[in-house]
């Protein structure tokens, strides 16, 4: 549905987005993840046609942003980063204005506003000025703004920024609900959020895509192998290392923590896509060591994220 090819954006000499390419399918929720200043917002702004790319092409349903901006804007709903609305306008007036500009016929506007107010939880504040609203409500006005004409594609720039945990949960469930039918691209630098809502995650750092995969696939298997932790008593560290390193698929064995009378801990790094828990356990069973602890450390998105973004930093 969305096809992005060699997309590049320069701000004077600074390269904010560096030849990225990706596709987004219909009905997908794509999370754009990255540290601050990675180029997320710039990418989204180019997708919405707010500014033209320095180079590359964006095709949405076979239309290009540069040649058919109006048709594309008609298909898109966009929530900008800080939800900058007209503070003096009433929520109702603002949303009616958006509906009119979006070309919704005036007899359908009240119905549409009522539906959106209920969907976004704005019914109680329609008569208030936008500037009086709390950050969370402001964000919902933004969502209502973005969904006004029932767009096929929703682009949300940090939709949960500045919200409290309850509000975040609400916005997330709202995104999931909408995402059942619509294509959603949203950016965030909160990993748990991407993990909770997205079908697919794309990690951007310094204008480049460093990872792009289904959320589940990214959590398992990609990148480095699993990390096993064992804690042993009555064992000689050298002997343990030699025994475990001889198992097929073990990449490295490292002693972790201080050696005490009670126990010695080891971190065992496995090769990617291998489950060695069984063979490690069998090897330990052959000896007279006492096994105090044995677990596999879950590969969190945090660790993937920090290892990926640090890698890029090192390369530069």
């Amino acid at each position: 549905m969305i096809h992005v090819e060699e997309l590049t954006k320069y701000y004077n000499d600074f390269c904010a987005v560096d030849h990225i390419r990706f596709d987004v399918n219909r009905g997908e929720i794509l999370g754009l993840l990255g540290p601050n200043g990675a180029g997320k917002t710039t990418t989204l702004k180019m997708l919405t046609g707010f500014f033209p790319p320095s180079d590359g092409e964006i095709r949405i349903n076979d239309l290009t942003v540069t040649e058919n901006p109006l048709e594309i804007k008609q298909m898109l709903g966009y929530l900008p980063e800080s939800s900058p609305f007209y503070r003096d306008m009433l929520v109702y007036d603002y949303l009616s204005y958006v509906a009119a500009v979006r070309g919704i016929s005036s007899d359908k506007i009240p119905g549409r506003l009522k539906y959106l107010a209920e969907l976004c939880g704005l019914s109680q504040v329609m008569h208030k000025a936008v500037g009086e609203l709390s950050k969370g409500l402001n964000q919902r006005v933004g969502l209502a703004h973005a969904m006004m004409n029932d767009p096929e594609i929703l682009i949300l720039d940090e939709p949960t920024q500045g919200l409290d945990p309850n509000q975040i949960a609400e916005i997330r469930s709202l995104i999931k609900k909408i995402g059942e039918e619509k294509t959603i691209i949203f950016s965030t630098h909160i990993l748990s959020e991407a993990e909770a809502t997205c079908d697919r995650i794309m990690i951007i750092d310094q204008g480049k895509i460093v990872a792009d995969d289904a959320t589940e696939a990214l959590k398992h298997g990609t990148g480095r192998g699993a990390l096993l932790h064992v804690s042993l008593k009555n064992a000689d560290p050298e002997h343990v290392r030699a025994t475990i390193e001889s198992i097929d698929g073990v990449e490295s064995v490292r002693q972790s923590g201080a050696e005490t009378d009670e126990a010695i801990g080891f971190n065992i790094r496995c090769s990617p896509r291998q489950d060695l828990r069984e063979s490690v356990y069998k090897a330990i069973k052959q000896t007279d060591w006492t096994l105090l602890d044995f677990h596999q450390e879950a590969q969190t998105l945090e660790s993937i994220f920090s290892s990926l973004t640090r890698q890029v930093n090192k390369e530069n």
Binding site: K45, T48, G49, F50, L70, E71, K73, Q74, L76, Y78, P80, S82, P84, F85, Y86, R87, V98, V101, R102, G103, H145
Partner: peptide
């Protein structure tokens, strides 16, 4: 200044 230009510029208006 407030950035609301972004809102109007991303709606289908020339």
């Amino acid at each position: 200044n407030t950035g609301s230009y972004e809102l109007i510029a991303t709606m289908p208006v020339t």
